[in-house]
Design a protein around this nucleic acid. Structure first.
Lengths: 105, 105
DNA sequence: TCCTTTGCTACATTTATTGTAGCGATACGC
DNA sequence: GCGTATCGCTACAATAAATGTAGCAAAGGA
């Protein structure tokens, strides 16, 4: 496997940004975190509760990645919230909600 | 942690189907596979090539999951393609393409 | 001061993914 | 028939990621 300088952009070897985005969102809890933050900001622990008590290790890792991507930010008074960009991203896959209701596995 | 009979539906403990969907899509290569199949059907090896030579182990695992979910099907003459449902799902997060172009990390 | 909560981290265990190789089945040309 | 190529799919050891539990320092309230 060809080593790249930036290991954070797996799946973006084609240079197409959608691949990088798909890769970032395709990590465990990424989509869920964005989903849970769609409303008001949550503290790290409230987020953890919302995410079925996912381990703080991954949550913290995902939050860092999502922050570096510019989708999530840590408010001054504490608590994680979506940036305008993150809110926009969240809106793009919000139709999944209705889709999932019809799907129901 | 409360054990459930169905371990495949992690993240759906709330009973909300969107959680199950978010969890399924939040596994490595799930989103990418749907993305690559958005056009014409691909053989398992063509899909592997499209997915940056991802290991056939995961690809096969994801394909099985996506098939069980009813999003992907194996055509009679060979080759994987999206079901009408899968095509619908794919369409819901297709706006990500344009979003990613504006984002560009 | 004591107690609580904040964001965040250590670390050992468990699970998932990777990379490589190869299977049986099917279909070609020769 | 024979070799060769492809199909979907699997085994398996090595590596990377996630889990679960515990706990840190800092900030704030009582």
């Amino acid at each position: 496997m060809a080593k790249q300088a930036d290991t954070k952009t797996r799946g973006s070897r084609t240079g197409r940004p959608v691949m990088a985005l798909l890769d970032l969102l395709g990590r465990r809890w990424s989509l869920r975190i964005l989903w849970e933050l769609r409303g008001e900001p949550l503290t790290s622990r409230a987020l953890r509760t919302a995410c079925d008590e996912a381990s703080p290790t991954v949550l913290q890792a995902r939050l860092t990645e999502l922050r570096e991507a510019g989708f999530v930010e840590l408010g001054e008074g504490g608590g994680y919230g979506l940036t305008p960009l993150g809110r926009e991203l969240c809106a793009t896959f919000m139709p999944l909600h209705r889709f999932a209701e019809r799907w129901r596995r």
